[in-house]
Design a protein around this nucleic acid. Structure first.
Lengths: 189, 189, 189, 189
DNA sequence: TATGAATGAGGGTTCATTCAT
DNA sequence: GATGAATGAACCCTCATTCAT
């Protein structure tokens, strides 16, 4: 009994994993608005299965990105422990944040969509990442290395926007612009 | 006969004007993906008329913004004539560029859409605005006021991205970030 | 110009007629909840056409029955003019009302559905038929031929309910029961 | 072995009871077309269990109402024993019948659905209740208190229909109409 | 030219039903 | 017996696009 339940639950978990992978892949190709049918098809399951695991698109999107969001947030604490200048810590964290953004093609666009179904994604990032970023900013500002008027949300949003790439504006361009933006945030002595 | 054709042409021109106005208005409300029918309705014409004048959505979008794009481009030459520092000229031009962007709700998003139907909008901006911006950059770089490695397209794209506003990231935030970005583009002596 | 518009409008009117006929027929077979596709199919048009003419199911249902509802309502005034006893007029009107109900298989059921999309059908009948029935009731009551406590809506609803037929309870049974109900509404001297 | 089977059977019986209770409750809220999953959920069992006990919806519906149907049928014999007029016995039985109908929200509608899955419910009522009602009618007719042409099924169906309530037609209205219907069934001397 | 009716592909969502464990 | 994950048919609705008048 326990076994058979375990087996089924394991199967469900595998399905869930497959769905997350399929959704992530489809998001890369089509963006977070990818048709549910396509996601189901890529995972080789019926549409009903998608709805069973993720009743709303928001829950699916959120689930897809939650793991990486958490990892990114955790990095902030780690960096603060390291024997490096606070502004250097911020720079490195922003690098990781960018990595997260760009590996998720279309996430940038999704973040600025006003579609209510994606609000929770916004909330997820706000609740998790903003405090992480804020801690780094505070440290850098306290060290006199950053203009203390810079706020975490605004900076993250700006970085996120700058990393929305396209034809003739690739990741390298985005990173260059982010670098210049950060330079402009440094304390003007 | 000639007369009646002339009359008809005049009518067609008026229809075209009305369509552009209607589309511009609808783009403000719904973004550039506004349903064709809504645009036709606002202009009080049939959908067929929209298609006759602008066979593709791209042509309509392009036409809507062309006039303002041209104006913005012309401003660069004017600014270069004025007795101000080249970097100041660039700053002012960027201000005007932002003004253009933000008065067109949704244009920012449109610019980064990969929808092929909007590619021509991209091209329009490239062909017209990039040279304008480049002339200002060149002047500022020549005056030693700007890092000469900054390219027009990348800068414009970055500015455009930074001005994609949303909840908790308003125009003021966008402008602030643009200011810091420009600061980061200044020549580092 | 006028002609061609006239032609198109005529075509649209014909389509509308065909849709009403198709819907009426489909309602007979499947009830008012018949899939829109089936109605479109029976009328040999695309689903979009159904939605163009009747944006909501309620509008379609209402339109299907409006003509007959109006006719039925008009009958009341006619009957009141005739040289017959008021209670006889009421009886005849109820007969006509029943005729209307039973020729529309499924209407009875629809009337008691709580589906909000059918509310307007309810309203239509209330607004149009209730006053008609009330005028007859009033006359009969004034003539001392009917219990004045009987109200139009309640009576109509009761008649409507009694005419919901099924296996082993045919129209004849329904009419018999209506007859007995009316007998029970007569003034008890 | 015998024991464990007995235990399992007892468990199955309990499950069945829980299912009937859950279904009855759900029918009150959503009508007899309530989703199977909702019923399973309320009974805290899996959907498969519902299907094991009641392979078709009809069987479930029938089982839910059988007990009360039986009770109602038994009442007829009781009433006939009492020292009251036969027509009074009929009236009281009809009252009980109404009570049964109205406490089951949606049963009225279900009875007139032509959904084949509900046919058996129909049969149940026919086989059990009709003879009960018929015995009362016969007695009343024999006593000269009722038109002998009234048949049990037709009367029950009519009463059932009159008790399908809705907005602006409440239970009181239904009962009033039933009263008038019964009045119209009295022997006309 | 202008019109707008008609089309139908496309994407969302629900739920009855099956079946492996 | 019980479970509940998976399936997919069936509906709903929107809108870009065509074309006869």
């Amino acid at each position: 009994m326990t076994d058979s339940i375990g087996v089924r639950e394991a199967g469900a978990k595998r399905t869930r994993k497959a769905l997350l992978a399929a959704a992530a892949a489809e998001f890369v190709v089509q963006g977070v608005q990818a048709p549910i049918r396509d996601i189901a098809g890529r995972a080789d399951v019926g549409v009903g299965t998608v709805y069973r695991h993720f009743p709303t698109r928001a829950e699916l999107v959120t689930a897809v990105y939650r793991h990486q969001v958490d990892e990114c947030a955790a990095l902030a604490a780690t960096l603060l422990q390291e024997p490096i200048a606070p502004s250097e810590a911020l720079t490195r964290w922003i690098d990781a944040f960018i990595e997260f953004l760009v590996t998720k093609h279309g996430l940038g666009v999704a973040l600025l969509s006003e579609d209510p179904s994606l609000l929770s994604l916004h909330t997820l990032m706000l609740d998790t990442l903003v405090p992480a970023c804020a801690s780094l900013i505070e440290a850098a500002a306290a060290a006199g290395e950053l203009d203390p008027r810079v706020t975490a949300y605004t900076l993250m949003r700006a970085v996120g926007n700058l990393c929305i790439i396209g034809p003739e504006y690739d990741l390298a361009s985005g990173k260059e612009m982010v670098g210049r933006l950060l330079a402009g945030c440094r304390r003007t002595t």
